[in-house]
Design a binder for these strands. Structure first.
Lengths: 142, 142
DNA sequence: TATTGTTATACTCTATAACTATA
DNA sequence: TATAGTTATAGAGTATAACAATA
């Protein structure tokens, strides 16, 4: 009997499962976005632009650098999906969906969410449990 | 009643939690490997070389391209941790841990798993549940 | 003809640093 | 002084394509 080895093996298995689940989520999102001819990051930004938002705020929500958001905003603007206008504080630029942007965002959200493996493969009770476990796992993370 | 926006929001929240959990696992692995002065990918290869393996086989286990393994094998060999010798099929090169490689692999495996956040933050019952949910989520994946 | 491993190169994603214009 | 956004550049990580040796 080897309790220590069992624990190590369990840790390895859990780590692998979490990595694969995350990869599945990424791959599924990319697959859902594919038909829309949008870069994945651009699609993610579009979906987050539920309401008008400062670029800095979008960077926070995407957990990325502000300089990266500049490129995404360029792309969204080039495609006519957002406007980029000064806010009250004139350093800020507010991204607001155009009519076309809102329409595309709606189509995108209809394509993305229902096909998500988490929503398809797990029932409501399981999703609630999974959310609780992952939240515990991530508690007090920096 | 559940609107489209509610579904999207739930899917997004679950995706985010899974991404963050996976990132936590990666960060923890990197932190554990840190003191060993090995690149993360090299450390991962070292841990997988439990037994001698063809480079192609290692690429399969790491889910990466063969050309990438060439670089890892170069690194491991440079450090004196593996030998790289022709197999029966002389196209194949077999990676085998040296004495130093085996010793380092043992130390590494002891350092990596025990402080894993999954093991520390979740009790046994929760880990069993999480494993069941993730396995369901990943069932029948290509 | 197909496969292993190698090499050189290219690509994707994202961050860092320096800058400007406001505040 | 500090912050929002921009620009140019750099780096990590990994793949692609062409190739030689072997099957």
């Amino acid at each position: 009997m080897s309790t220590q080895e069992d624990l190590l093996e369990e840790a390895r298995r859990m780590a692998s499962l979490l990595q694969r689940a995350a990869e599945q989520v990424r791959a599924d999102f990319a697959r859902s976005v594919g038909p829309f001819d949008l870069p994945v990051a651009t699609a993610r930004a579009l979906l987050l632009l539920d309401a008008p938002a400062a670029m800095r705020s979008l960077a926070d929500h995407m957990a990325c650098d502000q300089s990266y958001v500049t490129g995404l905003a360029d792309d969204l603007e080039r495609r006519g999906l957002v406007t980029r206008e000064p806010g009250d504080d004139r350093r800020v630029k507010v991204l607001t969906l155009t009519k076309a942007g809102a329409a595309l965002r709606t189509k995108l959200s209809r394509a993305v969410a229902p096909q998500s493996p988490v929503m398809v493969r797990l029932g409501l009770a399981d999703r609630v449990t999974l959310e609780r476990l992952l939240t515990t796992l991530l508690a007090d993370q920096p």
